[in-house]
Simulated assay, not measured.
Amino acid sequence: MKYGRSLESGSASSQKRKLKTKPLLLLIGILFAFNVFWFVGWLLPDKKPKQTGEEVASVAGEPITREQWMTAMEKEVGREVLLDLVNGKVMEAAAKQYAIDVSDKEINLEVALIRSVDGRSYTGLDMEKMRQKIRSNLILEKVLSKDIVVEEKAIGKHYEENATLYNISTAYRTAMIVVPTKEEAKQTVDELAKGSSFDVLAKERSTDFASASLGGDIGYINTSTDAIDKKIVEAVVDMENDSTSGVVALSDGTYAVLHVSEVLEGQSFTFDDVKDHIRRELALEQLPQTVNPEAFWDEFDAKWFYGK
């Protein structure tokens, strides 16, 4: 009897365990099926049409995608931007190879001389990018002129004959928005006062197309600048660093709004300050032809997307 009851109770316990495992087996089965469906779905090609890119604009309901926009920009300016990057790297490699050093003092001198002689040389570039390009150019000049001998007498004579170049007036990094009417100029002033971007407004409405594409930038100007309307020169000399003018009437009957992003105070350079600069200039004049950074590409194994 006892033995028989033991068998019966064992059988009952076994059945209970079987009953308890059914939900677990069912859950495992469901998870397995889900994984199989997921795996099959992953293997199958996507039947939905792929996105062609984020829409950045549209015309008559037709979208212009970010991909189209970026492709157009690459075709327009991509080559030039990449060329600058490659040439910058090449010149840094040349500086290391030939033990060329360029100091901040030398770059500061070049910035001062550039804004004195040709303030529009680096329009469209902020100060950091401008200094980078000047550094690359100085490396190039030093590499090319390192073995050329220039007499001290010639350097002194050049300094005396060009002394005015080394007495530099205060210069103003200027941007402008030119519009046909006074009313439009007033509206522009109001929008700028409310926080609108000078760069954006210049590109949208300035009728001076050369500067408009650069956000209105016309480079450094001073009291001796003769390539700019004198009305602009007269206006900026009373402006402070990072300031915007009111309406400025121009000589041709149009109107401008000006922004001065930087004021560089005038300074004078002694012979000792500029003798190395003059030595390089006179040395480079002895070269039979102009040499650019691309001449060093083979030496430093430079390659790029556009081929040769």
Rank of each mutant, 00 (worst) to 15 (best):
L165P: 03
Y166A: 07
N167T: 15
I168Y: 04
I168G: 01
I168R: 03
I168E: 01
T170Y: 03
T170K: 06
Y172F: 14
T174Y: 01
T174R: 00
T174L: 04
A175P: 01
A175N: 11
A175S: 15
A175W: 02
I177Q: 02
I177T: 01
I177H: 01
V179I: 15
V179M: 12
P180I: 08
P180R: 12
T181M: 12
T181L: 07
K182W: 05
K182N: 12
E183Y: 09
E184V: 04
K186N: 10
V189D: 10
D190T: 15
E191L: 10
L192I: 14
L192V: 15
A193Y: 02
A193V: 05
K194Y: 06
K194Q: 14
K194L: 13
K194W: 05
G195W: 03
G195M: 13
S196F: 10
F198D: 03
F198H: 05
F198A: 11
D199E: 13
D199W: 08
V200E: 10
V200R: 15
L201F: 11
A202C: 11
K203M: 14
E204R: 13
E204K: 15
E204A: 13
E204Q: 15
R205W: 05
S206G: 13
T207S: 13
T207N: 11
T207F: 05
D208F: 06
F209I: 09
S211G: 10
S211H: 01
A212F: 07
A212Y: 09
A212R: 03
A212V: 12
G215P: 01
G215W: 02
I218C: 00
I218Q: 00
I218Y: 00
I221W: 00
N222M: 02
N222G: 05
T223L: 03
S224H: 10
S224E: 05
S224A: 09
S224M: 03
D226E: 08
A227P: 02
A227D: 08
I228P: 00
I228R: 00
D229C: 03
K231S: 11
I232Y: 00
V237N: 04
D238W: 11
M239N: 12
E240C: 07
E240R: 15
N241I: 03
N241G: 02
D242T: 08
D242W: 05
T244M: 14
T244C: 11
T244E: 12
S245A: 13
G246P: 07
V247T: 04
V247A: 09
V248M: 08
A249N: 15
A249E: 14
L250K: 04
L250E: 06
S251A: 11
S251D: 07
D252H: 09
D252A: 05
